[in-house]
Design a binder for these strands. Structure first.
Lengths: 241, 241
DNA sequence: ATCGATTATTTTGTACGACAAATATCCGCA
DNA sequence: TGCGGATATTTGTCGTACAAAATAATCGAT
């Protein structure tokens, strides 16, 4: 997961091609892939390049190779659901709306928890990073600048938790979500509505009040959820027109 | 991440060897690896096998290869922290106690959130699975049986959230944690103390009371944390004796 | 005729060697 | 001194050949 969209090296292309096919359900679990030499010829790559791609997919839990038996697609249970590529392939393949809900749900779990820990353990430097991001939000004139600053704010809060795992999870989820909502034009008029709520979060973290921070962040992501919901409905309406 | 410990195929061995070296800090970020042919000879494998391993490590975000420049270890920020292998390597390499705290913290975030969603969305079949696990805990005579049933209980709760991402995250964290605490002999006398608390969780999920479930699960993992803390201290004491 | 061990076959795993592509470095030139 | 192209170095890709493993078939013995 380096360059989204089009891959540059050959085996990257193969990884994406096969990965997308599997995650989208085109290649159903349990199904056997052709022999490596056949498949390689079929995709116009060498067996070596194909194998390199298959090792990666294997590491992501998507396929399993055994001698004589061949290579087969593994059950969804074994997939590395939190892998950035797997998530991206899911997002790219018209997922069920339930999956998007799951993503949103993850954010709603992560962010308040992050606010708690940031309020507990933030350093002064980390607080300053949050404050800078907040000021950038307050100063933002258009929605572009505001989106960037908003992202920086949430990133700074996550950083302040001093928990790499939580930060990593946040990025994975956020990247997946951002592939849906380009968070641009829509409600460009009232984008500043969330500013006071952000201040509450900042203030709670500054004053080292974990529970206050949790509550503030909770309201923030809840508002965000309802925004997404309405946006989703609008999008769906446009889609079916 | 299929077989923990010793790998069977050659490139699996290479993956583990290099992965462990990197995550443990033996190979510092920014450092360049030898040329592929040199490194291959050095490890007594073919260049093809080495490359397959490197592609996997590259997919995990541990290394980055570019033509002419060579291959170098990437900054910790880019690592897939939630990858099962990366976590396992971390756990295996005498991690800082802060990292274990991070793992525990993740569990404390995940489980109460899972209880909430289980209480909201569980099906009758999922509730039954939780009940069966609870009864197995109640009937457990020794700590072995209790540990198995306990795991089944928590797994059932996670399943009841109907959120694959959350379930996947739970497994990753739990697997990493279990590599530390073999949860065996210690406090074998009072292992049943947590039973009533588990019942509260079950009951809240049965009655579809999200907030009650959260609170109950919260207390459960808090107790677990203090147990781990004491165990850790005992372990550390034994270690320095 | 059935069971068991042995052999055959198929598929991935590993190895080696050669060339293509990219790119940092160096050198010559204006 | 600055610039552009030649050059060298390193990964990327390819083809072939053989090894290892695991299933399927075969043969023999009871």
């Amino acid at each position: 997961m380096v360059k989204p969209g089009v891959a540059r090296s050959l085996h990257h292309q193969v990884i994406h091609e096969l990965g997308r096919s599997i995650v989208s359900g085109e290649l159903a679990p349990g199904k056997s892939l052709p022999r490596t030499d056949i498949l390689a010829e079929c995709m116009n790559v060498s067996r070596a390049a194909l194998r390199e791609a298959m090792k990666v997919l294997s590491a992501k839990g998507l396929i399993e190779s055994r001698q004589k038996t061949g290579t087969r697609v593994r059950e969804e249970i074994h997939w590395n659901q939190l892998d950035a590529d797997v998530l991206a392939w899911r997002c790219a393949s018209m997922p069920t709306e339930g999956f998007i809900d799951n993503l949103v749900e993850m954010r709603e779990i992560i962010e308040p928890a992050a606010a708690v820990n940031a309020a507990r353990r933030r350093t002064d430097a980390q607080l300053e990073a949050i404050e800078i991001a907040y000021r950038a939000m307050a100063a933002a004139g258009d929605i572009e600048a505001w989106t960037v600053a908003d992202m920086a704010f949430h990133e700074a809060v996550l950083q302040a938790t001093n928990n790499e795992l939580l930060t990593s999870l946040f990025w994975v989820i956020e990247t997946a979500l951002s592939s849906y909502f380009v968070l641009s034009a829509s409600h460009s008029a009232n984008f500043r509505n969330a500013l006071p709520q952000h201040f509450k979060v900042y203030e709670a973290i500054r004053r080292r009040k974990p529970e206050v921070a949790r509550q503030a962040m909770n309201e923030l992501v809840s508002d965000s959820r309802s925004n997404i919901k309405s946006e989703q409905m609008a999008c769906g309406a446009a889609f079916h027109s």
